[in-house]
Simulated scan of single mutants.
Amino acid sequence: MYRPGVNIIPIHGKTPRIHETAFVAPGSTIIGDVEIGAGSSIWYNCVVRADVFKIRIGERTNVQDGSVLHCDPPRPGDEDGSPLIIGDDVLIGHMAMVHGCTIKDRGFVGLGAIAMNKAVIGHDAMLAAGAMLTEGKVMEDRMLWAGRPAKPMKELTDAAIAGMKMGVAHYAENAKAHAIAVFESGLE
């Protein structure tokens, strides 16, 4: 599928695989061993760089404007490496840096937050805006972590989790509108 204004770059024999229903905004760069699932969205000026290992993005996940996603390869003493694995229905806020970690289904990464190698963001968990989840830290399901370095703050309420689900639905619909707007703009 042609994606105007998007840089899709194969490297080391790996070409990004982007589901036909995913929206990738102009100005974004998708490199190497990347898979992006159905209904997901990569917003303006994001970089998803899987030049040294793999990045997997599930379904209906959104990666908001200016975010950077990367990974680390296997190496001696770390044969598993640090792939970036992002589940379904995940929200990643503007200008986030997500590197070689795991974000489980319905996880949330706030604006400008950082998640480092081998860290795990649990199901329905939230890494607060500006927080830094350091290497190897594991956030439990339904927990809010904040600070630099991030620490557990509280369990999320059902209302907070419902709000995150509404955010996923909003971005899925908004991506459809942006895809039409990009097409109609004639951006080549």
Rank of each mutant, 00 (worst) to 15 (best):
K154E: 11
C46N: 08
G87Q: 13
D88W: 13
N62A: 05
V63K: 11
G37T: 13
H70G: 03
R148D: 01
P149Y: 02
N62H: 04
G186V: 03
Y171A: 04
H123K: 15
D88V: 13
K118G: 07
M139K: 02
H170W: 12
G112V: 11
P149D: 01
V63T: 10
I9A: 01
A115H: 10
D78I: 11
M164G: 08
R17Q: 01
F23E: 05
F23S: 07
I121G: 07
D80Q: 14
L111Y: 15
G37N: 12
N7H: 10
E20R: 11
I36Q: 00
A131K: 11
M97Q: 14
P76D: 13
F183I: 13
D158W: 05
G186H: 07
K165E: 02
A119G: 13
P26V: 06
I57A: 00
F23K: 14
A179N: 12
P76R: 15
D51N: 12
G32S: 11
G163P: 00
M116N: 07
V90T: 00
I42P: 07
R142S: 11
L84Y: 02
A113G: 00
S28L: 00
A113L: 06
D78W: 15
M1Y: 03
R17K: 06
G136N: 09
V168S: 05
G93H: 09
D158S: 04
D80E: 14
V48A: 00
D33T: 05
E20W: 05
P74D: 00
P16C: 06
G112L: 07
D65W: 12
I30F: 03
A160N: 14
A162F: 04
G93E: 08
K104Q: 14
M126H: 13
I30T: 06
M116E: 08
S41W: 05
H70F: 02
Y44E: 10
N45M: 10
M116F: 10
V90G: 07
E188D: 14
C71F: 06
D65T: 13
V138P: 08
L91R: 13
M139V: 04
I86L: 05
T29F: 01
D88T: 15
V34F: 02
M139C: 07
D33E: 06
K104S: 02
V138W: 12
F23G: 00
K54T: 07
T21A: 02
I161G: 03
